[in-house]
């Protein structure tokens, strides 16, 4: 998605420091003082994770820390909210994946 550089009331955003960070192994560009969620969206990425149980794709929902839908692994720390965390140079961000559910599969196979 494009960034809103010029705004009729809020003014223009210029001279912001740029750097790179890594999302699922891919190098992406971010601006200083923005959240991981904003940087990813600016790179056209809406899917932050896949649900642990169902595997369904998920993005940010509330964008202010209330819903936990945007949780990611950041520099090996799990369950970090992308909408509340400032992206940093060289940060390693990883999305959550569907977990294997052995018990559920066993039950399904026996049905």
């Amino acid at each position: 998605m494009t960034r809103i550089v010029h705004h009729p009331i809020l003014g223009s955003l210029n001279n912001r420091q740029k750097f790179s960070f890594v999302f699922n192994g891919q190098e992406l560009e971010a601006y200083e003082n923005e959240t991981i969620a904003a940087a990813l969206l600016a790179n056209g990425i809406r899917t932050l994770r896949h649900h642990e149980e169902s595997g369904s794709p998920r993005g940010f929902y509330c964008n202010i820390g209330h819903c936990m839908e945007c949780r990611l692994t950041v520099n090996e720390q799990a369950n970090v909210r992308a909408c509340l965390t400032t992206v940093k140079p060289n940060m390693a961000v990883q999305s959550g994946k569907q977990h294997p559910n052995i018990v559920k599969r066993m039950v399904e196979e026996n049905e």
Binding site: R3, I4, A38, R58, G59, N63
Partner: peptide, 24 residues
Amino acid sequence: WTLPGVMSIGASQVMTNVHRVQVG
């Protein structure tokens, strides 16, 4: 409503006016 791209109205306000990234 869990599809990526669905958000609360407030989320779009914060993305637009605070982070200055288009939501779509």
